[in-house]
């Protein structure tokens, strides 16, 4: 057992404002990055659901999504799209078309099925960025899904604000292990928060599409 001090009154009344910008390279927190976070990443769960619905191999969806992000980011570096969401889904459609053509996989689905209009209508508002109660509960849920140790590490680091070194001391584990828990926690939290993971889990039922995909040879 280890003792964890209670949050003190002070912390409760003055949660620590954090303003320090991260420094990792000359080009980093720029407008394009922000655009990507605010206009593209917020649609991740709708996007993932869309990809799962239309791409037959679900284990390829993360790769597809990454490539899509790369394309969208690079396109925006040249000219920022006026309608990010439509652009994102149109790009998704093109990407899938390209890939199908290139990998010579024959889809029996007509291309028209990639039409993302329905996705655009059922709007995923980016309100999680606006700090609503929903967003906090979503965060709480994502946090609760972490494995025990990982959850503990994230709590100590982010809420009790201990350094990684202090977390390691508190839990009697190595700093390297703390770092690993944090890396893992980040990935799991991202998956839950942005909803892609949710969509992947809820997206069952597309397995029956597997036979849709046939190799040309």
């Amino acid at each position: 057992m280890y003792a964890v001090p209670m949050l003190d009154e002070r912390r409760r009344e003055f949660p620590r404002p954090r303003g320090r910008r991260i420094r990792y390279g000359a080009r980093m927190p720029d407008a394009l990055d922000r655009w990507f976070l605010e206009q593209v990443l917020v649609h991740e769960d709708a996007l993932t659901r869309y990809l799962l619905r239309h791409w037959p191999a679900r284990d390829e969806v993360p790769d597809l999504r990454q490539e899509l992000y790369v394309r969208v980011y690079e396109a925006a570096a040249r000219a920022v799209p006026a309608q990010p969401k439509s652009f994102l889904f149109a790009s998704a459609r093109h990407l899938m078309t390209d890939r199908l053509r290139r990998s010579r996989v024959v889809s029996i689905e007509p291309m028209g099925d990639f039409e993302p209009s329905s996705v655009l209508v059922d709007d995923v508002s980016p309100e999680r960025w606006s700090g609503g109660r929903q967003a906090l509960l979503r965060l709480a849920d994502a946090f609760d899904r972490l494995p025990d140790r990982c959850r503990e590490v994230v709590w100590l680091r982010r809420v009790e604000d201990l350094s990684q070194r202090d977390v390691a001391m508190r839990l009697g584990i190595s700093e390297k292990t703390v770092e690993k828990h944090i890396a893992k926690g980040m990935r799991m939290l991202a998956a839950h928060l942005f909803g892609g993971d949710e969509a992947a889990r809820a997206g069952g039922g597309h397995e029956d599409l597997d036979d849709v995909r046939r190799h040309a040879d």
């Binding site: 949660p15 620590r16 965060l139």
Partner: peptide, 8 residues
């Protein structure tokens, strides 16, 4: 996750 502080 910084907002966990709000929950905490």
């Amino acid at each position: 996750t910084g907002r966990l502080q709000a929950l905490g």
